[in-house]
Nucleic acid binder design. Structure first.
Lengths: 203, 203
DNA sequence: AGACGTCGGGACGCAACCGTACCGTCGCTG
DNA sequence: CAGCGACGGTACGGTTGCGTCCCGACGTCT
């Protein structure tokens, strides 16, 4: 039987190495060195760099974040943003996730794994948030869950993970309010044009 | 004098190689090979891989996209989304930009260059769009241009560059309408009063 | 026309990494 | 207690890329 302590050491070393040098420069040799084991120990468990990364990352992505349920869409989003900000601020996540997303543009295997892990997760989270808001009457019937996801996740991901600007705690409620406004419009039947109805923050 | 044809051949080869293997795996040798020149030709012009990439990329990022000015914020955004989608659909952009953004998390030089090139550009574009909308009375006075950028760029970038879902032409107007809704809310004075909803996270 | 200066190309030594074969060791089993 | 099987570590040949040096070729200037 393979020793568990060595397996976990390799997993941990992979994450650190991935954050340090990225998938492109990642070498089995460096992972083994950082883990304090030999290359053979790695090759016995995974046959290639790709397989190693896919297994470890998909396992790590399986950890679900807590899902806010405050009974109010705007507050739910605000909490979600604070949670996501904290998660994305973590050095491992903030370096590994963009790196793998970029690599996914070249490697279909990585793309598929990330799609299943991240996008599916977000779709359920977003679906839950929006579904509950619809039940409470805060939103009309959703037209397209994909657009809803884009509107919810896009702004925060852009700011924290891409632009790398800090999300001022005071900004979270403002962004949440704005996204609620976007969702209200997006959920309307897409009648072209007459969207100059006054949209208030207050329900 | 350095021959211009070879210089441009190296520039073109760099972009292709960057898209093919990414910054991490990029090698001067491969660039020279693809350009059909010798390594010396590259080293005579740029002293290192980083310098080469910075120069070429910042030059390429300087190309400004056309800025829509239709006299209506929603239509401006719709046009902007179509333009951005087309630009991001280009294989070079769709692979190079996420790759460099990920690398920017490790390399301050790249981060700074991208900040200046992309973020600054977007800030001017967003500032223009929003400024004109404010002048027309479509929006109240902007509170924070950064949040406005996040709301405008985030959803589209997320969908096209990260989730890699195609933006259905029919989705552009819907996304534009939704973002207008978000901007209307975001531009209101952020009175924090009526959010006395309980702030608790239920798992 | 001839000499000079500059540029591109090929070759070299060096370092890192890959994937594998072999060897010593540990633990289980009878 | 002894034999066996599986595991981890070291060593190896091969490949790739780096950065540099030297040489032949081309254009220019006098």
């Amino acid at each position: 039987m393979l020793r568990d302590d060595i397996t976990t050491a390799i997993r941990r070393a992979l994450m650190q190495e991935l954050a340090a040098v990225g998938y492109g420069r990642l070498s089995i040799e460096a992972v083994a060195r950082r883990a304090g084991v030999s290359k053979t120990a790695v090759y016995r468990r995974w046959s290639s760099k790709l397989e190693l990364v896919l297994e470890v990352v998909s396992a790590a992505a399986g950890k679900r974040l807590p899902l806010p349920d405050t009974g109010d869409l705007r507050t739910d989003l605000e909490m979600l943003y604070l949670i996501m900000t904290q998660a994305l601020r973590h050095p491992l996540a903030s370096q590994i996730i963009p790196d793998l997303l970029a690599e996914a543009a070249r490697n279909p295997q990585i793309a598929q794994t990330l799609q299943e892990a991240l996008r599916l997760h977000q779709r359920t989270v977003g679906g839950l948030l929006i579904g509950r808001a619809v039940e409470r009457g805060e939103l009309p019937v959703v037209v397209d869950p994909d657009i809803a996801i884009d509107l919810i996740v896009g702004p925060l991901y852009w700011r924290v993970a891409i632009a790398r600007l800090p999300l001022d705690p005071a900004d979270a409620p403002r962004m949440a309010s704005a996204v609620v406004g976007a969702l209200r419009v997006a959920c309307q039947v897409p009648i072209r044009g007459e969207s100059d109805v006054e949209l208030s923050v207050r329900p």
